[in-house]
């Protein structure tokens, strides 16, 4: 049994410890906002926060999160009120939307480490792939979220 708290809710998962966290979240717990894109840690679609740190769930064995707190896109805010989500809406970032859960989780983590990132910081930190090419809007949205946070927006979770 793996004991893990996901978005504040406790789960006891009867799965092999080596099962990637991604599939435990999606197929076992049933939260499908976290996406599968590559399964090799290369695209960032599966980005989640583990005890507040950014991680790629497809290359994180669920055994490694035993006793930890995981936040997925569903848990970032209850009502899309997280400054990064607000900025994403304001900049109309998503196209197909498939990469966006991961992009948002990565951006939220970046802003916690780095409240005022430059474009270079953003380019370096955001290694998530978007095949629809929302990159320019992601840069703008991260700058906007940084400004929202500076104005005292909700603390990134």
């Amino acid at each position: 049994m793996i004991a893990v708290t996901i978005n504040g809710r406790h789960h006891e998962l009867d799965v092999p410890a080596e099962m990637p966290l991604l599939w435990a979240i999606r197929d076992v717990v049933g939260l499908t906002g976290t996406k599968f894109g590559c399964g090799q840690g290369l695209c960032g679609c599966c980005s989640v926060h583990i005890d507040g740190r950014l991680a790629r769930a497809c290359v994180t064995p669920v055994g490694a999160v035993n006793g930890k707190h995981v936040t997925t896109i569903e848990g970032l805010s209850a009502d899309r009120s997280h400054p990064v989500q607000q900025a994403w809406i304001a900049e109309q970032v998503p196209q197909c939307g498939y990469c966006q859960s991961g992009q948002i989780m990565a951006a939220a983590a970046l802003l916690r480490r780095h409240p005022h990132p430059s474009d270079d910081d953003i380019n370096q930190a955001m290694s998530n792939i978007c095949r629809c090419g929302s990159y320019q809007r992601i840069r703008a949205a991260i700058r906007r979220a940084a400004a929202l946070l500076a104005q005292g927006g909700e603390e990134a979770s």
Binding site: G33, T72, Q85, I89, P94, G97, S101
Partner: peptide, 10 residues
Amino acid sequence: DVPAKVDGSA
């Protein structure tokens, strides 16, 4: 479609 694409519900 943007709201459902920023909260994982799409």
